[in-house]
């Protein structure tokens, strides 16, 4: 029964049930040629189910990367990329830019403040050695300035997070991009295998058809390229029926 929502698992179960009935019929009539032909078809269904699993995984990953959402607070800071999509990789790049900008502001303040504190501390140091009755006050000032200088240095060193987190995000972005590319390449390869057996129906939003979607030569060529744009990934997935 068509429910309006495509369910690949249900489709495969129905196909196997149909083939099981055919197999039983062939065996009852001692049609061994027909029986082995049905068994071959059953094996083909198993391979195609793997192909569909890969396709759904590729589609899921691609959708997650393209439509990655952040909460309302985060959206205030994160811009859409040039394609208009608030994609995951684009947003991670924005995180790197934001943290870099934040670190830059902090470092600007530190650059302006640290030399002043150093100069004051050195001046207090010199004065305290020849200050007479004011010696205690100057000694306290020197001690306080030393502590401020030490605290500022710790703030300075803490800005190193931006380098380390930025490197980590760049690596994650690279892995995501490669994973998507590899899945598309695997999917294209699996489609070649699929064409050697009976094709499964094309995925549809509201119906199950018995026709397989042909993969255009252009789409296959596209999948072989080192880097695919988000738009071409969409097109390729669609041409493969996902």
């Amino acid at each position: 029964m068509t429910t309006g929502v495509f369910d690949p698992e249900q489709m495969i179960v129905e196909r196997l049930q149909g083939k099981a009935a055919e197999l039983a019929s062939c065996l009852e009539s001692h049609d061994m040629v027909g029986a082995f032909s049905v068994i071959e078809h059953i094996n083909a269904v198993r391979e195609e189910s793997i192909f569909y699993g890969l396709g759904l995984l590729a589609r899921g990953l691609h959708t997650a990367i393209v439509t990655f959402e952040v909460d309302d607070h985060g959206k205030h800071y994160l811009a859409e990329d040039e394609t208009g999509a608030a994609g995951l990789t684009s947003q991670l790049d924005n995180v790197v830019r934001m943290s870099e900008e934040s670190a830059r502001k902090t470092l600007n303040i530190l650059d302006a403040t640290l030399p002043m504190v150093r100069d004051l501390r050195v001046a207090a140091d010199r004065a305290s050695s020849s200050a007479g009755v004011q010696g205690d006050f100057l000694e306290a000032q020197k001690s306080g300035l030393q502590q401020i200088e030490q605290n500022l240095m710790e703030i300075l060193m803490a800005q190193g997070f931006q380098d380390l987190s930025g490197q980590a995000i760049r690596k994650v972005n690279g892995i995501l991009g490669n994973l998507q590319k590899d899945l598309i390449a695997l999917l294209t390869y699996a489609n070649h295998v699929k064409t050697m057996s009976e094709p499964l129906p094309v995925q549809g939003a509201d119906a199950v058809s018995d026709e397989s979607a042909p993969v255009s030569a252009a789409a296959e060529e596209e999948a072989k390229e080192a880097a695919l744009s988000q738009g071409s990934v969409d097109d390729l997935l669609a041409s493969l029926g996902f």
Binding site: L107, L110, M157, Q162
Partner: peptide, 17 residues
């Protein structure tokens, strides 16, 4: 030499110190 501005400036400031 560092590709992250923050790290370049941190090292520079420590060297100044």
């Amino acid at each position: 030499v560092d590709d992250f501005e923050s790290m370049r400036r941190i090292v520079k400031q420590v060297l100044h110190d």
